[in-house]
Write a protein that binds this DNA or RNA. Sequence first.
DNA 1: GCTGAAATCGCCTAACG
DNA 2: CGTTAGGCGATTTCAGC
Lengths: 166, 166
Amino acid sequence: MAGTRLDPIDRKILSELQADGRMTNVELAKRVGISAPPCLRRVRTLEESGYIRGYHADVDSRELGFEVQVFAMVGLNSQAEADLSAFEARCREWSLVRECHMLNGEVDFILKCVAPDLSTFQRFLTEDLLKAEHVASVKTSLVIRDAKDEPGVPFDVLEDRINRSA
Amino acid sequence: MAGTRLDPIDRKILSELQADGRMTNVELAKRVGISAPPCLRRVRTLEESGYIRGYHADVDSRELGFEVQVFAMVGLNSQAEADLSAFEARCREWSLVRECHMLNGEVDFILKCVAPDLSTFQRFLTEDLLKAEHVASVKTSLVIRDAKDEPGVPFDVLEDRINRSA
DNA sequence: GCTGAAATCGCCTAACG
DNA sequence: CGTTAGGCGATTTCAGC
């Protein structure tokens, strides 16, 4: 399932569906150059094997009223696996935290947070994040503007790499 | 267009399509409690007004061979708008850079990058990023693991907020 | 203005070669 | 993988609230 190798048609399918996740199967089939039924079978296989984790509408968060976006660098005073995992579990519970990545180096985690306004974020920061177990330091940076925010993966890099090794 | 106010059904539509962007219109209509035609009209309106920017398959980047994910903090030696914009334009050209956010505070930008392996990233770092105009400092942090990576917006926070002000 | 019902059209998705 | 074919969803039209 997981280690299934992908052929060029599979990669094209992934690329197309990453660019437009609501494309109809017949349109997708036309673009990748096969007929609809095998195309649909490939899509199902890609879904079941985990290459496709889901499909999401890309909603304009600012338009919806989330005017604040913040990156938070979090350091813990313990790097025991149990404590790291516990912190990650808390992050999964907090709606304002959209991403939590464990990092190497001096800081332990980077969090991407959203909030309707600054005071909502400040409340989260002081009442939740800073009070969480083993949190030793938090440095926050407000996002002024987004220059680029592309979901997904650069398929051009992937194809270059495959052509190079061929 | 942009300032159009959303009613509870619109918000439910956005929430459902964020969770499953490939849901059929009839299923969506059932979930939000109206019939299919008005539901489809609402979706089209949400698309045209910019609340929905697009739909994307969420592909597993590691499974696809992008084993390296890096956050890069970039400082420029000029904060003139022309230089900031020029750097942002470069970021949009670099496939490995998936996100580029301008920040407040000591660092100017945070970049989220992906790469097939470390050497590909190092090459990008030394040959592209560090050589870009006005780049003064770059600090990179490798992502060890992702604890949470939720695309989109927390609709529960939005609903809480609306109920509170009602 | 909105919604919903009916009808058409096109797509999805089996089954088979 | 392609073709066929039946059923279901998408989308327009039109009537009603």
